[in-house]
Nucleic acid binder design. Structure first.
Length: 391
RNA sequence: GCUGGGAUAGCGAAGUGGUCAAACGCAUUAGACUGUAAAUCUAACGGCUUACGCCUUCGUAGGUUCGAGUCCUACUCCCAGCA
């Protein structure tokens, strides 16, 4: 992976750049649609390309469960298996430690247990016991053939105590070191033709490994975590453990702090973020990469996001709005979601009334049109942000 | 016309002598959702009230009973079978 900065804003930390990956180039800032199980829900690969997506996400935990990384590997990697054929970033399953912990399976067992060595998961599909170590998670992602991979980390909720967050920072640093060592030895063995113990797992390409900075909303923990990770000289740095319940102001405060700590010449990835405004604000604080389920999930829940562009003299200002297509006020509304939008739903002449009707009926077409609209809106925002670097 | 069955909140449907303003669906309304166990989840949903609570209901009208959505009688309407 290679990251090149193309331009830098004079007034903010916003910058544009290019990331070269084995599957192609990505312009930054970038928004990465989420395709947890290997598909961006309801959207075909060619549609993603038409919308302007450059890279999509997959999740190691989910893909390990089904269909299994071995199958994906046999098809030449996820990008070939799912016909996206472009760059892919995989998450480690670290977020599932957060989202599945505290939740109970049907027979009352906790789904997640963390030890120093790794994480014990109970499959949310069948309750079976799984044990993930940082090494295993790297192996899974190598087999999946992702271009950018994430180390197993511990992502605590915003309600976690300081001591829990300290523990998460310690484990995340330790696991990152193990991930890096393991990845390097796997690649070295592969290049020198040495069969590893996982001979059935094929290394599709040499992926980039990011560090994931944790530390909640504690500046000292964030700083410590970042500095320890920077010592490892990674390909990029993720900011994890945000947008997990804290306020936007608290989140941006941490992003701002890390903007001053993380190396400028490496991409920064704000994991799981966020709303249109979150992304807009965070790019001004030097964040290059984003992913979020909101545009796709909210579409399935009837919400359409709107990007309001107002041009006054030389300034283009951005505002954001969301409308709930399920509300009966749209029952007879002949307007599209947004008359200025060029997405397939808006430019295709679909009225709010029809989209309201489809949403009420839970019709797949309605879900798809809103998904296309929302992804288009997110990707449009990113393009607008890239233009703002001149300022 | 005869014989059965039935009429419960916007709709469907539980309930068969006391704990019934009435389970459960659906519809409606509101809310949530940020590295996807999420085309999901939560709440409200007779009237009045912030709430405690109070009031009015189970086709209509009577009756039995301490007490009736539940039992009896008549009537109205609906459904099925037979003529």
């Amino acid at each position: 992976m290679k990251f090149t900065i193309l331009s830098q804003s004079k007034s903010t930390s916003l910058r544009t750049g290019i990331i070269k990956t084995p599957h192609g180039e990505i312009q930054t800032p970038v928004f990465m649609p989420v395709g947890t199980v290997g598909a961006v829900k309801t959207v075909a690969p060619w549609e993603l390309r038409e919308l302007g997506a450059e890279i999509i996400l997959g999740n190691s935990y989910h893909l390990y469960l089904r269909p299994g990384e071995k199958i994906i590997s046999e098809f030449g990697g996820l990008a070939e298996f799912n016909r996206w054929e472009g760059p892919i970033l995989t998450d480690s399953g670290g977020f599932q430690i957060f989202s599945l912990s505290g939740k109970k399976s049907q027979n009352g067992n906790s789904l997640v247990k963390i030890t120093d060595d790794g994480v014990e998961f109970r499959s949310h599909l069948d309750g079976s016991k799984l044990f993930f170590t940082p090494e295993k998670v790297v192996d899974i992602q190598l087999a999946i053939g992702a271009d950018i991979i994430m180390p197993l980390d511990v992502c605590p909720s915003s309600k976690a105590s300081r001591s829990e967050i300290e523990k998460a920072v310690g484990l995340s640093i330790n696991w990152l070191k193990r991930s890096k060592n393991h990845l390097e030895s796997r690649i070295m063995n592969h290049e020198s033709g040495i069969k590893t113990h996982n001979s059935e797992l094929i290394i599709q390409n040499s992926p980039a490994l990011f560090g994931i900075v944790q530390g909640g909303i504690y500046p000292d923990l964030r700083q410590f975590c970042a500095e320890e990770m920077i010592k490892l000289n990674l390909d990029g740095y993720s900011i994890g453990g945000l947008a997990v319940g804290e306020s936007q102001a608290e989140m941006l405060e941490i992003v701002k702090l890390l903007d001053g700590i993380l190396p400028k010449d490496k991409p920064r990835y704000l994991m799981g973020v966020g709303t249109l405004d979150d992304i807009y604000q965070a790019t001004k604080l030097g964040v290059d990469m984003f992913d979020c389920v909101l545009p796709t999930r909210m579409a399935r829940h009837g919400i359409a996001y709107i990007l309001l562009l107002t041009q006054s003299s030389k300034l283009r200002t951005l505002n954001f709005k969301e409308i709930n297509m399920l509300k009966s006020v749209h029952r007879a509304d002949k307007n599209p979601i947004d008359k200025n939008c060029q997405c397939p739903a808006c430019s295709g002449g679909f009225s709010r009334a029809y989209l309201h009707h489809l949403a009420k009926e839970k019709e797949i077409l309605g879900i798809r049109l809103l998904t296309l609209h929302n992804l288009f809106t997110y990707l449009k925002l990113i393009k607008e942000i890239r233009l703002k670097v001149a300022a």
